[in-house]
Computed example of a mutant assay.
Amino acid sequence: MKSIADLRKSYERAELDESASNANPLQQFDQWLTEAIQAEVPEPNAMTLATVGSDLRPSTRVVLIKGFDARGIVWYTNYESRKGRELAGNPFAALQFHWVELERVVRIEGVVERVSAEESDAYFHSRPMDSRIGAWASPQSEVISGRGVLVANAAKYAAQFLLQPPRPPHWGGYRLKPDNWQFWQGRKSRLHDRLRYSEQADGGWLRERLAP
């Protein structure tokens, strides 16, 4: 068996130059996400979300981006989950996209807030029925005795709500408003391209190259 210390890959697919990148990080992100979707990479909308609890221990999990605009990056989850509890105590978080096939990483940092109830309602009712019932059935991050708990909960709520499950009060969206972006493009000889965009007091963005 090959040692993991000996695993190597040469990154040679593309480059990221200041003159060719967008001056606005949101537009640069839009371009890269579009290219990831068009390239049909596995789950291009998957992103790692990092939060920090009151014990100062960080935790990560994978969530799915469900929207983005000038206001920020949006995803949906259970407000009573570990991430929800940690965001309630510390609203700062980080996101990371890793599109392996394109040799690209996007890192985003900022402050998080809940989206409006109207936005959460609209997205919830666009979900498949099984997913809507699942939001009721799963006490996310809580200890359960077995999978049977989830199955029983799903059956109970399906019978209770029939075809009209409302959005649970403990479920909805979050929006991260970025103040720092990083775009990483793999390059040959580990001399990767890495651009950072930092939000300025006037609302503009400072673009800088970082050593990889």
Rank of each mutant, 00 (worst) to 15 (best):
M1D: 12
M1S: 15
K2T: 12
I4A: 13
D6P: 04
K9L: 12
K9V: 13
S10R: 11
R13I: 12
R13E: 07
E15G: 15
D17K: 15
E18S: 14
A20I: 12
S21A: 15
S21F: 04
N24H: 14
N24A: 10
Q27G: 08
F29R: 07
F29W: 10
Q31E: 13
Q31V: 06
Q31T: 10
L33I: 07
L33F: 14
T34Y: 06
T34S: 14
E35D: 12
I37Q: 09
E40P: 00
V41K: 01
P44D: 02
N45P: 03
M47T: 07
T48N: 09
A50W: 02
A50C: 13
T51D: 03
V52A: 00
V52M: 03
P58G: 07
R61H: 05
R61D: 00
V62E: 02
K66R: 15
F68I: 08
A70L: 13
R71S: 12
G72V: 00
G72W: 00
W75P: 04
Y76M: 02
T77K: 01
N78W: 03
Y79T: 08
Y79D: 11
S81P: 05
K83R: 10
G84F: 01
R85M: 10
L87G: 06
A88Y: 06
A93T: 00
E101S: 08
R107Q: 13
I108A: 04
G110C: 02
G110K: 00
V115A: 04
A117D: 15
E118Q: 12
E118Y: 03
E118A: 15
E119K: 08
S120P: 10
D121S: 11
A122T: 15
A122R: 13
Y123L: 08
Y123C: 09
H125C: 11
H125L: 14
S126I: 05
R127F: 07
S131L: 03
S131W: 02
R132N: 01
R132D: 04
G134R: 01
W136R: 04
P139N: 05
Q140L: 08
Q140E: 08
Q140D: 06
E142C: 03
E142S: 11
V143C: 04
S145Q: 11
R147W: 08
R147F: 07
G148Q: 08
K156P: 10
K156Q: 15
Y157F: 14
L163H: 13
Q164F: 09
P166N: 08
P168F: 09
P169H: 12
H170M: 11
W171D: 06
W171V: 11
G172P: 09
R175G: 00
L176H: 01
Q182V: 10
Q182I: 04
R187F: 04
S189M: 10
S189W: 09
L191P: 03
D193M: 03
L195G: 08
R196A: 15
R196E: 14
R196N: 09
S198E: 14
E199H: 13
Q200T: 14
Q200C: 09
A201N: 12
D202C: 10
G204M: 07
G204C: 08
G204N: 13
W205D: 07
L206P: 09
E208F: 04
R209M: 02
P212H: 10
